[in-house]
Design a protein around this nucleic acid. Structure first.
Lengths: 224, 224
DNA sequence: GGGACAAGTAACTTGACAGTTACTTTTACT
DNA sequence: AGTAAAAGTAACTGTCAAGTTACTTGTCCC
């Protein structure tokens, strides 16, 4: 009876408090960066006292690290969730990235603040990168992708095409005249990335227009 | 006599002081961002008193703006200096960007700190963007570039391919295993961008391998 | 119920930093 | 030379924010 209250709905719920802190911290860090973020603001947003925040996470940097670590774990499913041909899923990745611009911003703040110095354990990241490169290699071996390109550089370029407009929204707006958050912009970019991916495939030597038909937008239905 | 001394070599040289401040500010802001930068550090680096800094530039934000404005003006010559076919000059742009990573970082800090809110007058920027898009359109009209691609999205993508590795060095290192500042990395990326640009050109319908020979690396000699 | 410990609060300390003030030195002009 | 304005300095002020301390409230178990 009492236990039920304490475990679920009670104001005293450490795990729930920690979740609230992490959520608030993600928003604050993504919006203002490490230096600009205010611990008091995070505590306020999480409706918790600063004291508890320090109790759970040690210090500001520890909190940042934890936020980053969590997001990383959450996002490591990306590669696995993408439909087979890696380049064809560019629009899919972009679509997902748009729904979670905070993630991109967090990475960007990390990049700027600490450059190449690692701020969290990177084994997961490295693993994912290696796996993606391996997939590109396999596609090259199967002849689905020209072998002249270095798979690493290719992967880097794919990430660039996805992340750049979100990381530099002022540039995107300057060039296209649309705000990055405008659905029109997102549709436009998705369409471009689709065309791009198609153009990048090695031309099927002899196959006619029916060669490999309409697998294009499968990911859209896969989402809902 | 006295005038000559005062104008050129004297410790009292306002213009020279301002130059030193701007130089120091560029380094500090690029390294630590607006929130992380310390006015005292800038003053110290410029071997000048804080008072004068405030006298010349009003406040911290004014100084940041001026640094940004200057760099923008300095860089607006880029487009003009690029050899004709815009996509072919990708490696050239990347090469230049590498020599001036501070510029990219400054833009990145700006993007994160203020998002799409403009922090300086953007007419120059807009003008350059419009000009570049116009050039791409002309190339499409001439049949040098497939017309299926939106020129704006294409320009955005070119900037992405150039800036992303410099803006997210941790990603570049994760994927390629090389530091962005490593000359090997830079060579590798330049080579990739070159291949990429070639692959992107519409296939010359009938022309043999001699179709349009070896204009490829002209920009390298043009630099020295 | 009572005591031990976990969760929570508010007020405080300490240091850092943007911006200022009161003052001195150099240059420019007559 | 004399003087006014520009260029420069060091020490100061007020604010803000990270991290701490001393204290209160709720929870769990006997």
């Amino acid at each position: 009876m009492k236990a039920a209250h304490s475990k679920k709905t009670g104001c005293r719920n450490p795990l729930h408090s920690q979740e609230r802190i992490l959520e608030a911290a993600l928003k604050e860090f993504a919006a203002k960066g490490f230096a600009g973020a205010r611990v008091d603001a995070i505590a306020g947003r999480a409706r918790i006292n600063k004291r508890m925040l320090y109790h759970y996470f040690g210090d500001k940097k520890g909190l940042f690290r934890e936020v980053l670590r969590r997001k990383l774990a959450e996002r490591s499913a990306w590669l696995a969730s993408a439909p087979e041909p890696l380049i064809e899923s560019l629009p899919f990745w972009f679509h997902i990235a748009c729904r979670d611009a905070e993630w991109i911003r967090l990475l960007e703040w990390e990049a700027l603040q600490w450059g190449e110095r690692k701020v969290i354990d990177e084994s997961h990241r490295r693993e994912n990168a290696v796996r993606a490169i391996e997939r590109l290699r396999q596609q090259q071996a199967k002849g689905l992708l020209s072998e002249e390109f270095d798979p690493g550089q290719l992967l880097l370029s794919m990430m660039a095409l996805i992340a750049y407009p979100l990381a530099f929204p002022q540039m995107a707006r300057l060039i296209t005249g649309l705000s990055v958050s405008d659905p029109d912009f997102q549709r436009q970019r998705e369409a471009f990335l689709h065309q791009f991916a198609m153009a990048f495939q090695p031309r099927p030597a002899i196959a006619g227009p029916q060669g490999r038909p309409e697998r294009s937008h499968s990911w859209k239905s896969a989402l809902k």
